[in-house]
Nucleic acid binder design. Structure first.
Lengths: 215, 215
DNA sequence: GTCTATAGCAGGATAGAC
DNA sequence: GTCTATCCTGCTATAGAC
């Protein structure tokens, strides 16, 4: 068995597939395009993954999910610097983990685009990702913030607030074409720094709304 | 000439095309599917619109853009009830115009999905929509809020805040599959009312962050 | 304007040689 | 495991009858 070679082909296919699925969406990408980009044979996708759709699922299982582990690790390290994290520290770490971090800019883009497309046309990949990644992370965030919130804030309201922070952050990531056109700003380092400042401030004050009772 | 019949076919095709493009995306929809759903002939799309892509553009020109006029009209009517709208009134009207209004639930869904897909894979439709709809609306909102803000708030910060309000609102609209799974809530009237309350509160406090200087 | 028929091509999947 | 060749399906677009 030449497993090493096999694995290399498999990995190259996964890399090309992730990039192309992210850029163009599942239906707009052909197996020919993927095998062309990964310099592998047309038959390799079906040999290694069984079908085009199963390759798509493997992209999530072997690329998307592992990447969230790196993101989460960095999130945890940022919080570790502040022994008693307050809400503003958690929010800041959340925002930065999406907009700034060890991921390359292209990786972040791919990551977000894949998720955005999954949301627009959900498949089994979304189900898997929500249960294995998002729900546990939501619980972690909730546990971090809970001690700083008044007792009258129930779990549902807290969840909605967390989702809102994520929502506004994601909007600035994936709606890049709209934001760039409207503001006339490229997403360079300077603009990203402004964005992080802005979103953190906006979101912290939004979270603080939890401290008031609904009227 | 049987223009009336022609127009009916044209309109039926536009309706089916919009629904299908929204649900599945441009590439995942075939002309056969569209003409099947609109009970028209396979050749009708190319006869009336010239090409599949031009039909897609017409969906934006003749369905998407006109719908924003209805949304904007209702937004204006809501504000007309309060002669001197403060920021909280404007924000509330913004949030409601996306989540609640004269549009049917399905119309709102279609509208958002089309935009979401356009953002993920921008075409000329996005360019058109940004210039003809979003930029003017951004300017209107900015003008409404400007009188209530301290002088030190520059136009760029205000724009980012407006985008944030829109961002969090849109997130709860288009990320419905994720939100529903995570919260276990269907998007029924009760949950929508909770969402409107929540988002409005969150966004008002986020906007109020403008009243502080950056630190 | 509407229809049928079909050209012309690209797609996913697979059989079978090596 | 890798490759070529190919099957078969489904697609867009169009020609031409009515």
């Amino acid at each position: 068995m030449s497993e090493a070679v096999n694995d290399q082909t498999r990995e190259r296919i996964l890399d090309s597939a992730e990039l192309l699925f992210a850029r163009k969406g599942f239906d707009a990408v052909s197996i020919r395009e993927i095998t062309g980009a990964s310099k592998s044979n047309l038959a390799a996708v079906n040999y290694h993954f069984g079908s085009k759709f199963n390759l798509y699922m493997e992209v999530f299982r072997q690329r998307w999910v592992p990447r969230t582990r790196r993101i989460r690790k960095q999130f945890a390290e940022r919080l570790a610097d502040t022994p008693e994290p307050r809400i503003r520290d958690v929010v800041n770490a959340m925002v930065r983990s999406f907009l700034d971090g060890q991921l390359t800019d292209q990786e972040r883009l791919i990551h977000g685009q894949l998720m955005q497309r999954e949301i627009a046309s959900p498949t089994d990949a979304l189900k898997m990702v929500v249960e294995e990644v998002m729900r546990p992370q939501q619980q972690r965030l909730s546990d971090l913030m809970r001690p700083h919130l008044p007792a009258h804030v129930d779990e549902n309201r807290l969840r909605l607030s967390l989702l809102s922070v994520i929502g506004v952050t994601l909007y600035f990531t994936f709606a890049r074409p709209v934001v760039s056109r409207l503001t006339g700003q490229e997403y360079d380092d300077e603009f990203k720094a402004v964005l992080i400042d802005h979103i953190t401030t906006f979101a912290i004050d939004g979270m603080n709304a939890l401290n008031k009772e609904y009227n």
